[in-house]
Amino acid sequence: MNNVPGDPIEVLLVEDNPADVRLMKESLRDSKVRNNLHVVNDGEAAMSFLRREGKYSGVPQPDLIMLDLNLPKKDGREVLQEIKTDPALKHIPVVVVTTSSADEDIIKSYCLHANCFVTKPVDLDQFIKVVQAIEDFWFTIVKLPREGCDRK
C-alpha cells in the first residue's frame, strides 16, 4: 500500500453520460482501496471543482482525474490543456477514459500530457477489467505526489 492508510483516494470523474457514471461507480464500489468518487458532468464544472470555485469551495483536491473527451460546455481536450498548463494542477495524473479509439484523439491527448489513454470497452467484463486495471495501477502501484509543483 503506497498511500497513507486510512486516507481515501480522491477521484474526480468528469463524465456527462450518467450510464457511464453509474457503471464507473459500480466498478469502483468493490475496490480494495478506499476512494471518494466525485462526479462532475461538464468541462466547466470540472475546472470549477479543481479550482474550488463557487459551490466547490470546500472540496478536496483530487489525487486522480478520470476525464472523458467529449463533454458539454468545455471540451475534455480543453480541460486537459488547462490542467496541464496550470502549475497548481498539472501534477495531478489525468486518465483519459473515452469511447474514442481514434488515432488523432490518442495523439492529441498525450501531446497535452495526458497520463494515459483508455478506450471504454463495449463488453461489460472488459469494462470492469479496465476500471480495475486503472484502479490497481493508479491507486496501488504508482506513487502519487502529495502536493503540487508550486508548493515546495
Binding site: 450510464a19 457503471l23 467529449n70 469511447t99 481514434a102 471504454k120 463495449v122 463488453d123 461489460l124 469494462f127
Partner: peptide
C-alpha cells in the same frame, strides 16, 4: 466513432 458508439456501449454494458 464517438457519438454512435457511446449509446451502443451503454446498451451492451447494461444488458450485460
Amino acid at each position: 466513432s464517438h457519438d454512435l458508439q457511446e449509446p451502443l456501449r451503454t446498451i451492451s454494458n447494461y444488458v450485460q
